[in-house]
Nucleic acid binder design. Structure first.
Lengths: 250, 250
DNA sequence: CGCAGTTTTGATTCATCTCAATTTGTGTGG
DNA sequence: CCACACAAATTGAGATGAATCAAAACTGCG
């Protein structure tokens, strides 16, 4: 997959834009959470641009100058970091309602790659304007800080996963995390499509793709899940949870 | 080590406090970086309390209500997360000039433990006041966002380390990171004391303490470092760097 | 229909963990 | 100040989980 020119949708109609945040189905999970109607309006004015990406396209690349963060309106992304010697590592999967690009704030350039794993659409939030607006809307400021903090906490959880869990447990943790996030979005917590390949999942979990495949097969043999390529059906949510709970205790 | 009542140093003298930030030797690395004298003064007024901790004392614990972040004035800390089933994992080591506690913003409660690994002193920065002040001082706002973003980027680096490096490489990355941070503080980049035990380092790197010990011995046998318990002397900084650079390439 | 990419599964190798014994270092109280 | 007890670190031998190498099966797309 090679670089593709980003397709930017310019502001079309003032009216439709004003309602964009208000009508977005990711709203409850997104940045404007908890804002009043008037504040929502202000935020809506700021988010002037939507951007569509096809599967495989980069939203941004490591080293790109930083100017905006992105709220995922629809779709699914991965972020990955690459070292000088070519090793790459998937640092996260993001779904709609989640914020991308905060890695870029510290160095005025993005510190990872963000790639759409399916056709997606994001809201471009110019960061300078977000800072400006959040200085006058305490709720927005507070919420933005929470979003950044949540990313830090989430990353600590992944570090824990990578540092202490065994292969099968990592996969269980991954599946339960997806399940919970789908549930929060009103989708089935027990039935979903993986958007990532075994290789990408492996990279995220610090495992080789064969190990991911084997672990999935094992979980299927244990009758905890059903796997059919990217389709996952969790048949025992409790069973999975128990696998994480009492590993050393018993 | 059990819980110890936190020792809080109340504001003593208005004058001495007003100069606290200005005179702090961690200033160049800390939150006030880049502020004007007048802004520094305002920040200084906000940071009303210093707090001293003895080795082994907790600055905060998982679940503690969140009200402030902490700038390390002197000393050395570790942060760790613990799961229900008792597994714990060290998520980071922090030295003076660095900020602790941002994990607590998202849930109004701290999401990890912070423990002093040597006698330390921190500046307590009430978070509500920081938000309030940063709404009027753009430089402060910007800088705070950078600090949070830097933590995210750093965590991604650790995830990469945990997911893709082998034991010896992880240790090299750890030592080089310490070296660089000591250098940035005006200390020797090639000679320092580890404040953490092998067990804590192992937890941080996703390794067992024996593996840490073996890897250190190996690096010593390769004449890249000298080890004497917690004392480390790097004899070939370039040699260490090469170990990380061309592992797969050659 | 065929080809490329992805996934599954098997056999083997290797790195790290585990268990265990010893050494070294540290702090405390007599 | 020294001796003792406890914590931390080193080192070895063996077990084990995941990586590697390899082949076959499946999927989806042109």
């Amino acid at each position: 997959m090679k670089a593709v020119a980003l397709q930017v949708i310019p502001a079309i109609k003032l009216h439709s834009l004003k309602d964009a945040c208000a009508q977005c189905n990711a709203r409850e999970l997104c940045l404007p959470q908890g804002l009043s109607d008037a504040e929502l309006q202000q935020l809506d004015d700021m988010v002037g641009v939507r951007q569509k990406l096809k599967r495989g396209e980069h939203l941004y690349r490591n080293g790109d100058p930083f100017s905006a963060i992105y709220a995922i309106k629809t779709g699914f992304f991965k972020t990955d970091v690459v070292t000088e010697d070519g090793r790459d590592h998937v640092t996260g999967f993001q779904m709609h309602g989640e914020i991308l690009g905060m890695d870029g704030i510290s160095g005025d350039a993005h510190a990872c790659n963000a790639v759409a794993l399916e056709d997606s659409e994001v809201c471009v939030i110019p960061f300078a304007e977000l800072e400006h607006l959040s200085a006058t809307i305490p709720t927005l400021q507070r919420h933005f800080h929470r979003v950044m903090s949540r990313e830090i906490v989430r990353d600590h959880g992944i570090m824990m996963l990578l540092g202490t869990l065994r292969a099968e447990e990592r996969l269980v943790a991954f599946l339960l995390n997806l399940s919970q996030r789908y549930a929060a979005r009103g989708y089935s917590p027990t039935e979903f499509h993986l958007r990532a390949t075994r290789d990408e999942i492996g990279s995220y979990l610090g495992l080789k793709l064969e190990t991911v495949s084997r672990a999935l097969s094992q979980l299927q043999d244990s009758e905890l899940i059903q796997v059919q390529q990217k389709y996952i059906r969790i048949t025992s949510l409790d069973g999975l949870k128990k696998m994480l709970a009492h590993t050393q205790t018993c």
